[in-house]
Computed example of a mutant assay.
Amino acid sequence: MSSLSSSPERQLMHRRAIAVQVYSRADGLFEVEAELQDSKTRDIPLAGGIRRAGEPVHDMGLWLVVDRHLDILAATSSTRWMPYPGQCDQHGDAYRQLVGLNLMTGFRAAVKQRLAGVKGCTHLTELCQHLPTAVIQAFAGVVLDVREGAEDGTPPFQIDRCHALRSDGAVVQTHYPRWYRGAAVTPPAAGNGNLS
């Protein structure tokens, strides 16, 4: 990946890797595994001793079971590497509080309310923010109809959920013409000098 202005003298200091995998199960449910790992390119002193370059500073995960409606049926977390052993991993299993939430309806606000600050782990709580869109990607074309839309006449799930897939845009006009709503009309700006 290139940046806007990369300097030849730049050196990598820190790497955060986030991975989310979604698995289908024989019972019709889905398992979500999300992991976050931070590492440094230099040795650093931590409460538990020196953490060598490349070893994780943080290595933690969330595991969920969700249904086809994106309801969370089970949740747990794990902290394998941490800067403060015996403390970072002592939040009980606060992330069981995700059970009962829906990934599409108020999920991010509910996570913040239930787990922000000292109620949970900052990194696990941030990791939660990636879950809705990752699960949507897994469900696209399998659970969610992304081609024709629902039989009740509602458009495909993704229409009007991002800039490229807006109902008045070129992508929808080309690939989803049934759902194209025409270009939005922008009223002329006041004082544009056109008096006709």
Rank of each mutant, 00 (worst) to 15 (best):
T154W: 10
A170R: 01
R147S: 04
R166G: 05
S167L: 08
A150F: 11
G141Q: 15
L165N: 05
R166D: 12
Q158C: 15
D152S: 12
F157C: 07
I159D: 09
F157W: 15
L165H: 03
A164L: 10
V171P: 00
R147V: 11
D145R: 02
V146Y: 00
P155S: 13
P155I: 06
R161E: 06
L165S: 02
D160K: 04
H163Q: 05
H163G: 06
A150V: 09
E148I: 14
H163L: 10
G169P: 04
G153W: 10
I159V: 07
S167M: 07
V142D: 14
S167W: 03
F157S: 06
F157T: 05
V143I: 12
R147M: 08
P155M: 07
R166F: 08
V143A: 00
D145F: 12
R166W: 03
V142P: 04
G153C: 10
A150W: 11
A150N: 11
C162K: 12
Q158D: 07
Q158R: 09
V142G: 08
V146P: 03
Q158A: 07
L165R: 04
G141E: 10
R161D: 10
G149W: 11
P155T: 09
R147G: 05
R161C: 05
V146Q: 03
G149M: 04
I159G: 13
R166N: 07
T154P: 07
L144A: 09
D160V: 02
G149S: 01
F157I: 13
P155G: 11
H163C: 01
C162S: 14
L144Y: 14
I159Q: 06
G169F: 03
Q158H: 15
V171N: 00
D145E: 09
G153T: 15
G141T: 13
